[in-house]
C-alpha cells in the first residue's frame, strides 16, 4: 500500500529549503503555461529528468509510469480535434488534421505529463511537515496548511478502504462494470456509501485525537524544520527565476506557439 511518496534521502534536492522547492514547482507550472510547442517543452523535461536522477526519485516515477505515459495520447487526441490551424494533412468531413495540430496536441499532453512529474518530484523530496511549514512561511494560516498536509495522509487510507469495499460488494455478486458510463457511475453507489461513512467516522476520530494532543492552542506552533536559506538555495532561486523569465520571453516573442 502506497502511503507516502516521500523518499528518505539526503540528495542536494532534498536538502533545498522547502519554500524553494515549492517555488520550483510553481516555476514549472508557470513556464509550461506560456508555451505550446513540444520543442520548447523539451528543456523542462530534461531538467525534470536530471532532477529525478539527482534526487533518486526513479522508484516513484516507475510507480507512476503508466499515468505519465497514458496521459499523453488522450490529451493529444482531444486537442487535435479542437485545433484547426495550419495546412491540413487530412481534411475529411469534420476531421481536420494538420502537422501543427499534431504538434499542438502532443505539446498539451507533454505539458500535463511534466506537471505530474514535477509534482511527483516535489512529493518525493519534501515531507508533508516541510510542505505545510513552507506554506506557513508563505503566510498561509497554520490550520489551513495543516489541513492540506493531512489531506495527503488521508488519501491513501481512503483508497485502501475503497478497495476493500469494492471487494466486499463483488463477493455479494455485485457487478460494477455494467452498462454505459452513467450507468456505471451509478453502480458505484454501493461502494461510495461505505467509504464515505467510514471516512466520516475516521475523520471524527482524528479530530478528537488532534484536539487531545493540543492542536489549536492559542500559541504559535514551534517550527521544527531545520532549514535555513543557504547559498545553495539562493542559487537555485536565481536559476528558477531565469527559467521562468526565459519561458515568459519565449511566449512574448512568439517562440512558444506552434504556428507562428
Amino acid at each position: 500500500m502506497l502511503t507516502s511518496l516521500y523518499l528518505d534521502r539526503a540528495s542536494a534536492i532534498h536538502r533545498l529549503h522547502p519554500v524553494v522547492k515549492l517555488f520550483g514547482l510553481f516555476v514549472v507550472f508557470w513556464s509550461v503555461f506560456w508555451v505550446d510547442r513540444p520543442l520548447a517543452l523539451v528543456p523542462i523535461a530534461v531538467l525534470l529528468i536530471l532532477a529525478a536522477q539527482v534526487a533518486g526519485a526513479w522508484p516513484n516515477f516507475y510507480a507512476f509510469r503508466w499515468f505519465l505515459i497514458l496521459m499523453i495520447p488522450p490529451t493529444m487526441i482531444e486537442w487535435m480535434a479542437v485545433y484547426r490551424q495550419g495546412p491540413p494533412l487530412i481534411d475529411f468531413w469534420f476531421i481536420h488534421l494538420s502537422g501543427a495540430a499534431l504538434r499542438y496536441g502532443f505539446g498539451k499532453g507533454l505539458r500535463l505529463a511534466e506537471l505530474l512529474a514535477a509534482s511527483i518530484l516535489f512529493l518525493s523530496t519534501t515531507t508533508v511537515e516541510d510542505f505545510s511549514q513552507s506554506l506557513i512561511n508563505l503566510r498561509i494560516p497554520y490550520r489551513v496548511a495543516f489541513a492540506m498536509s493531512l489531506a495527503f495522509r488521508l488519501v491513501p487510507l481512503f483508497m485502501d478502504s475503497a478497495l476493500t469495499v469494492v471487494q466486499a460488494q463483488r463477493l455479494r455478486g455485485y457487478d460494477f462494470d455494467q452498462g454505459n458510463v452513467f450507468e456505471r457511475l451509478r453502480r458505484y453507489v454501493p461502494a461510495m456509501i461505505p467509504v464515505f461513512m467510514g471516512a466520516l467516522r475516521r475523520v471524527n476520530n482524528m479530530a478528537m485525537a488532534l484536539e487531545a494532543r493540543g492542536f489549536g492552542a492559542g500559541v504559535r506552533p514551534t517550527n521544527l524544520s531545520a532549514y535555513s536559506m543557504t547559498r545553495r538555495d539562493v542559487v537555485a532561486c536565481a536559476l528558477l527565476i531565469v527559467i521562468g523569465t526565459v519561458y515568459f520571453l519565449l511566449y512574448l516573442y512568439g517562440y512558444g506557439a506552434v504556428t507562428p
Binding site: 466486499a168 460488494q169 453507489v189 454501493p190 461505505p194 467510514g198 467516522r201
Partner: peptide, 8 residues
C-alpha cells in the same frame, strides 16, 4: 469491518 459492506 462490517462497515465495509453496509450501504442500504
Amino acid at each position: 469491518n462490517p462497515d465495509h459492506q453496509i450501504f442500504a
